[in-house]
Structures are given as C-alpha cells and as structure tokens.
C-alpha cells in the first residue's frame, strides 16, 4: 500500500486529487494499491491514516477556500508515516520556500518527492539531488518544466545514453500566446496582454511571465538536471517580450520569420539565455497559442522535438501522475 501526502491544495493539488479519485482503478492496475494519508494547504490540512476522503477534501476546500486549521505540513512530515509526498505549494524562485523545507525534510527521511514546484529546484537542485541519493529517496519533477509536455523523463529515460548538446524551447505558454496573437492580429503588445488577462492566460501582474523569469527558472532546472551543469538563476541572460512591436512581426514575416520567446542552453557555446528570437515560420518551434515546445539536440538521436500543453491543473496533474507511476510501476 503506497501512502501519499499532498502538500499544497491550490489548482495543481486539487487537480492531482481529482485524477487520483477519477482514475483510481486504472492507477491501481499500474502501481498497486494506494491511499492519500494527508492533504495540507498553507493554513491547515486533513490527515487520515486510513485514507483521506478526497472527494470530501475537495468539497471542503471549494466551499471554505481552505482546509481545516490545526495542522501544518511540517507536523505531517514529522509525525506521519508515508512513502511519497506530492509537493505542489506555490513557487518562489528566490528562496524556494515553503517547498524547499518540505522537500528537504521528506528526502532526509527517505520519503520520495514528486513536485511541480520550480522554486526549490532552481534554488538548490544539486543539494536536493545529493540529499535524495544519500537517503535512497527519489526526487521527481517532470511537472516543473513544460506542464504536460514530456521533457525531464524523456531525456533521462528515453534519450538515456545520449549526450545532450543543447535544448531550445518555448517554456512559457503566456508569452507564446501573446506573441502568436500579435503575429496574427497585428495588434500591440498592450492590447494582446489585456486580452490574455481577460482570458485568464496572463496574471494581473504579468512580470513573472513576460520578463522571461518563469522560462529562465525552467531553463535552470533543465540545465542542471538534464545537462549536468551547475548554474544559478542569475546566470541566465534574460530579455522579455514587452518591447516587441506589431511592425516587428511584419518586417520579420517579409523574410519568412516569426518571433517567439526561446529559452536556450548550449553547453559548448556557453549559452544560457531567454530572449525573443527570429524563428523560420516552418520551424517546429514556430508554434501558436499557449503550447510549450522543446528541441533537444543530441549526439545519437539527432534532433528530437516535443510539443504539449504547458500549463493547466489537469495537464500539470498528468506530469505528476506520470512521475508517481514511474516511481511505483508494478
């Protein structure tokens, strides 16, 4: 019986709970019997060693906007017996908290971690990877990069044995939405940003996305975990999309190009940057809408391209569940 704890019960946490609930039978066939023994959010949580009623937990959270108070995530880690934590609290790329402490405390105790939280990995990937190794625990983080688009396990497993020369990708769906709409509608950045906010694609404060911060954080995770590098967030050369004009698309289009925000890591060239780039319109990275894409350059397999949905609670849950299955496949 696999005992799971879910830390963080926002959109992603709830998405995971729903998938565990609705796909219970098919997941059991894959990984054997499992139960969720704790669900926590920033204010409290529900603990039941016999298995939390997820439908009820979701109902309480939706009705009250919070879980019952009186329990903290650290209490759960210190006192409860469980095998794997799903760490889906809010990302903070400056100090990584609260996720960093959650992940560290779990790994120390030999508890496996599956996370969608970029912060702890951006701040302390190599330390966490070491900690996991020393305690015979696994740290899984497919959901930190590209949402449902497979890239972490794709490179680690399916491209195992390849040397990864470079990865170039579209890692932020919000920017890609804005740029592809500007390309089509010939409207200004501000007009399309307003549209994206209305559709819930961009946040009220879009800085994190449009200045390339989110993409840079994901690039750091890719560089450190897939290419054996040891880089920090501040090492990323970063230019956002706010200064791009509709005329830029027209001029580019005359030469057969469009513009996309590309995150690029190239070890030999010493490149680590997020910046708008000219992309030939027939290039696989010239994708539209909120999609993510990545071009992986390898020695044996040549170029491999993946495209997928980069955000959304169900899509992120897909990546988390795939990590869970990878850990416990029968």
């Amino acid at each position: 019986m696999i005992k799971i704890a879910i830390f963080g019960f926002g959109a992603v946490g709830q998405g995971v709970a729903e998938v565990l609930l609705t796909k219970r039978d098919s997941l059991r066939r894959l990984i054997g019997d499992f139960k969720v023994v704790a669900v926590t959010d920033s204010r409290g949580g529900i603990v039941d060693e016999n298995g939390v009623d997820l439908a009820k937990a979701l109902e309480i959270k939706r009705k009250n906007k919070r879980l019952p108070e009186g329990i903290t995530t650290l209490d759960v880690i210190e006192s409860l017996d469980f095998d794997v934590c799903i760490e889906v609290t809010v990302t903070n790329i400056e100090h990584g908290e609260p996720g960093l402490t959650h992940i560290r405390e779990c790994l120390k105790r030999g508890i496996n971690v599956v996370t969608s939280n970029k912060g702890p990995l951006v701040v302390a990937y190599s330390k966490l990877a070491d900690l996991a190794d020393r305690n015979d625990a696994k740290l899984m983080f497919e959901a930190t990069v590209g949402g449902a688009m497979p890239i972490i396990k794709l490179v680690k497993n399916d491209l195992a044995g390849n040397e990864i020369y470079a990865i170039k990708g579209i890692l932020n769906g919000t920017c890609n939405y804005i740029l592809s709409r500007m390309e089509k509608e010939k409207l200004s950045y501000d007009q399309i940003l307003a549209e994206a906010k209305e559709l819930g694609i961009a946040e009220a404060d879009p800085t994190y996305d449009v200045e390339g911060i989110d993409a840079a954080a994901k690039l750091v995770i890719i560089a450190n975990s897939l290419m054996g590098m040891n880089v920090k967030f501040d090492d990323v050369e970063r230019v956002g999309i706010t200064k791009i004009t509709p005329e830029a698309f027209e001029v580019a289009m005359d030469k057969g190009y469009t513009i996309r925000l590309i995150a690029e890591v190239d070890r030999a060239e010493g490149v680590l940057r997020v910046s708008p780039r000219l992309i030939p319109i027939q290039h696989p990275l010239a994708i539209s809408g909120t999609l993510n894409a990545a071009l992986i350059k390898t020695d044996l397999a040549g170029d491999v391209v993946v495209v997928g949905k980069g955000a959304g609670s169900k899509e992120t849950a897909s990546a988390i569940v795939s990590d869970l299955v990878e850990l416990y496949r029968c």
């Binding site: 200064k243 580019a252 590309i262 708008p276 780039r277 000219l278 992309i279 030939p280």
Partner: peptide
Amino acid sequence: KDITVIEPL
C-alpha cells in the same frame, strides 16, 4: 542605444 535585438534561432 537601448535598442532591442532579436537574434535568429
């Protein structure tokens, strides 16, 4: 000169 440069992929 505070000019944004967009390089080719």
